[in-house]
């Protein structure tokens, strides 16, 4: 870890102006990902701008019944918040499924969206990785990739995004709010992460120097009937090999509204719009759920060792939607 300057900022405009003045600077939130990456040598900032004490640590119900979540709200506070648990239970579950109690106390909402992939080649600075060192190659494609992407990847990178929280946010049409020296801006989560293409090192559409100030969740009554499920290689304290956030409104056996997002399958939380379209207005049956999952996963491109994710995600879609259907019937 090389030496760096440190500055704590107390208001947003100061934060963006300090960062804007130093191209070698990075924002420091909880540090749970950035400090780790600095230790492994992946990140080598010259200055850290500590934004943890910015007044962005509130969760508020918007007049229309949505939520405004500040960027420095910790993962723990987000998951424990009664309005999050009441209105978007899958979001609370997703956050609780991530990391550990200690890390959730430190990690912030803004930082969670910006966390980097956990691909083992990305964190090994001695070897190649297109995301870390553009043009150096992707050893995962020929190497260890059993937990890599099946959707939206490219020949340049097959890494997945590790966030659980982001999967639920994707299902609920979250909008990311940010601030730059030019003023505030917004990005729907759907547009927040860039396609991988041949530029896997470019991960988000945030303007240069932008600070995430928060997330807006539009009102979504369907989200009150939502659930998150995570599959991993040990029962806790591990990243997903597949996860799903689902919300379902069934009326008289027909899907009135459905939200589906998949995790650990792509370079971003994967909103399953194809499946949602296939389901809406149709019967809430296991057969329909499976057909919708197949429609979504038709675009999947598996590598030799991650093909299991196709049946895994299919099973998760069917299982979770079936559970939600049964719950609605009770």
């Amino acid at each position: 870890m090389k030496e760096f300057g440190y500055q704590r900022v107390l208001d947003v405009s100061e934060a963006v102006s300090v960062l804007g003045a130093d191209p070698d600077a990075r924002f420091l939130g909880g540090g749970t990902n950035l400090v780790d990456l600095m230790k492994t040598g992946v990140e080598r900032p010259g200055r850290l701008v500590d934004v943890r004490e910015l007044p962005l640590d509130h969760v508020e119900v918007t007049p229309d019944g949505g939520l405004r979540i500040g960027a420095t709200v910790t993962n723990s506070d987000l998951a424990a918040h009664p309005e999050v648990r009441r209105r978007y239970p899958a979001l609370a579950q997703a956050v609780l499924a991530g990391a550990s109690g200690q890390l959730r106390n430190m990690a912030t909402v803004g930082g969670n969206l910006l966390q980097r992939t956990r691909c083992g080649y990305f964190t090994d600075v001695a070897g190649p990785c297109n995301k870390r060192l553009p043009g150096s190659g992707c050893p995962a494609i020929e190497g260890e990739h059993h937990n890599h992407a099946i959707l939206g990847a490219s020949a340049h990178c097959v890494a997945t995004h590790p966030s659980d929280m982001g999967v639920a946010l994707a299902a609920f049409d979250a909008v990311v709010r940010y601030e730059t020296t030019d003023g505030p801006g917004e990005l729907p989560l759907a547009d927040f992460y860039l396609p991988v293409g041949d530029t896997p090192h470019l991960e988000t559409a945030l303007p240069s120097g932008a600070l995430i100030t928060g997330i807006t969740l539009p009102p979504a009554p369907v989200a009150a009937h939502s659930r998150y499920r995570k599959v991993r290689e040990r029962a806790s304290y591990a990243f997903a090999i597949g996860s799903i956030a689902a919300a379902l409104d069934v009326r008289d056996g027909t899907v009135h509204e459905v939200r589906l997002a998949l995790g650990a399958v792509a370079s971003r939380p994967w909103r399953a719009l194809t499946a949602e379209r296939a389901l809406t207005g149709g019967p809430a049956t296991a057969e329909a759920f499976a057909a919708a999952a197949d429609a979504e996963l038709a675009a999947a491109e598996a590598l030799p060792h991650n093909g299991y994710k196709v049946p895994l995600m299919r099973n998760l879609v069917v299982a979770l939607l079936t559970e939600l259907t049964e719950e609605a019937a009770r």
């Binding site: 440190y6 704590r8 420091l28 909880g30 540090g31 749970t32 400090v35 780790d36 850290l48 500590d50 943890r52 723990s76 109690g101 200690q102 890390l103 106390n105 430190m106």
Partner: peptide, 17 residues
């Protein structure tokens, strides 16, 4: 940290002031 558990290995000392 302020009564909440945290991993001190990822907490910069300067940021704990």
């Amino acid at each position: 940290l302020d009564g909440r558990r945290a991993v001190s290995c990822l907490q910069l000392a300067v940021a704990a002031e």
